[in-house]
Amino acid sequence: MSKAVSELNGARYAGLAEVADAGLRGMITLRGDLDSAVLKSAVQAATGAGMPGIGRISVAADGAVAWMSPDELLLLVPYEEAGAKLAALQAALAGEHALAVNVSDARTYLRLSGEGAREVLAKVSPVDLDPAAFGPGQFRRSRLAQVAGAFWMEEDGSFGIICFRSVGEYVFKLLKTAAHPQSKVGVY
């Protein structure tokens, strides 16, 4: 079995904010009826986190659930456990109109932290990142310059960023440029 390596392989850059490869993360895309009690308890069992509200992420000790669309969730679990969690999820959802797929290796997971994190992200995304409009626990699928991406804010003010693995390097370089020390705008 080959050793799994994240696409950016630990790359990091410190400027206005610190951009870092957040390593491998187990991710399961789940589509189905989000009001279903069976689905809710299966999600709870897989991640330890409850159902998130619209546009939010609920975080537990080693898992998280993000609201992707009215019929889609993204489950974050430890990378090594993704296969087992998926099997358990599919067993729990037997008979439900739902679909769960392990997408861990299709994604790149980055972390953006530090003072300038809001500003750096705001430069590349059309999202209002004012502290009043975007706070911890909020999750947003949007656009990172030219590619699709999703991000959320942690309690400590850092951002988790997810994009497709194929554009991971693009997103890293994009954030790196946006975090250049001489490019401070000072909006937030």
Binding site: G55, S69, P70, P126, R143
Partner: peptide, 12 residues
């Protein structure tokens, strides 16, 4: 109307 996001044109 689904996610309540005020999306600007480039997101649509």
């Amino acid at each position: 109307p689904y996610c309540g996001v005020k999306a600007e044109e480039t997101e649509l």
